[in-house]
Design a protein around this nucleic acid. Sequence first.
DNA 1: ATCCGGCCGG
DNA 2: CCGGCCGGAT
Length: 221
Amino acid sequence: SAIQHALIQWYHQHQRVLPWRQPSVRRSAESMTHGQDSNTMAYAVWISEVMCQQTQISVVTDYFERWIAKWPTVQALAAAQLSDVHQAWAGLGYYSRATRLHEAAQYIVNQLDGSFPTVARLIFCWPPGVGPYTASAVASIVFAKRVGVVDGNVNRVLSRLGGIAVPLTQDAAKKWMWRQADTLADHAAPGQINQAMMELGALICTPKSPQCHACPLAEHC
DNA sequence: ATCCGGCCGG
DNA sequence: CCGGCCGGAT
């Protein structure tokens, strides 16, 4: 669709440079087999997504780089001491998530043979601590699964884009958002679409004084 | 002082 | 379907 095309174009030009989008995340992986390549990316994306859930990106970047330097693979994280994991997490808050990250790494290594699930939203096959958002993010960004993601940014972009007419209950609104996101992500590059929506919400379609003049979707909104 | 956020437990 | 988790930003 025109919206998908506009998103892809805009994202290609305006995405921020972030460590988990860098070749360095892939570089070590690209010399490996295809399976390990994806899996290394999945690990990095997973960690970055969980960190970004609770903390601003500007703060996350340092934490992320230290984390990856310390534990470059899911196997390394699984083998870490929980106390060290908490130490690396210090300042981020929600310590239970660091605990779950550690538990999840052990689950992936021990129960899933070190391979991340490639499916989205089947949360029973993802480790505890990974919900619909994170599962869909990894599945779409790393494994090119055609599923949408809905976070605070996407919520806002979709609300404005769709101009919700009927007052919906929370539950109905939520379902509507995920449905819209899934439709948008039905594209050859679902991860680009999803990241474009989130980036748009972060940079242009901001909560107050959105920069509609710079928005690639302005004519559809 | 208040709000914000994915996920989980109740 | 609501409230708690924790720190940061406003």
